[in-house]
């Protein structure tokens, strides 16, 4: 399979222009701004990886294993360590809030902190 075909089949990424150095006909290096296929491949892989992780999180929430906070955290490409730093809580506390039964009892003030950190409204934060 040609490199070109591989990237077309691997990724549905539109051609975002990024600079890369390539020698021209005379062997002199110039900055070319056509998207390069390896970059497109890896970008496509990463995008699909993130999507899969968000989908997995959504399923876990719908199945009642995790609180909606887990989904919103995945959506913002965060993990518990980053989220804990952003809201200014301990990782232990954030992990506890990922349990649905504990999340449902949270005070509005705590929810507000999460909503602010994840840039969603409080209503959105409670749903997926």
């Amino acid at each position: 399979m040609e490199p070109d075909e591989i990237f077309r089949s691997i990724a549905d990424v539109d051609g975002l222009k990024r600079g890369q150095y390539t020698p021209n006909n005379q062997g002199k290096y110039i900055l070319d701004t056509n998207p390069s296929w390896p970059e497109t491949v890896v970008n496509g892989l990463y995008v699909s990886d993130i999507r899969a992780r968000i989908e997995e999180a959504r399923r876990a929430v719908l199945a009642g294993q995790k609180s909606p906070l887990y989904y919103h955290m995945a959506r913002r490409q965060m993990n518990t360590a980053i989220l804990a730093k952003t809201v200014g809580m301990t990782v232990f506390r954030v992990k506890r809030h990922l349990r649905p039964e504990i999340f449902s009892k949270l005070k509005p003030s705590i929810l507000d902190r999460y909503a602010h950190a994840l840039v969603v409204s409080q209503e959105e934060l409670k749903s997926v």
């Binding site: 600079g19 970059e39 890896v42 892989l45």
Partner: peptide
């Protein structure tokens, strides 16, 4: 590895072309 080599704006082939 591939991502770090080609993405992140390396100018191609993990900065080797640059």
């Amino acid at each position: 590895i591939l991502r770090l080599q080609e993405e992140m704006g390396t100018g191609g082939a993990g900065f080797r072309f640059m």
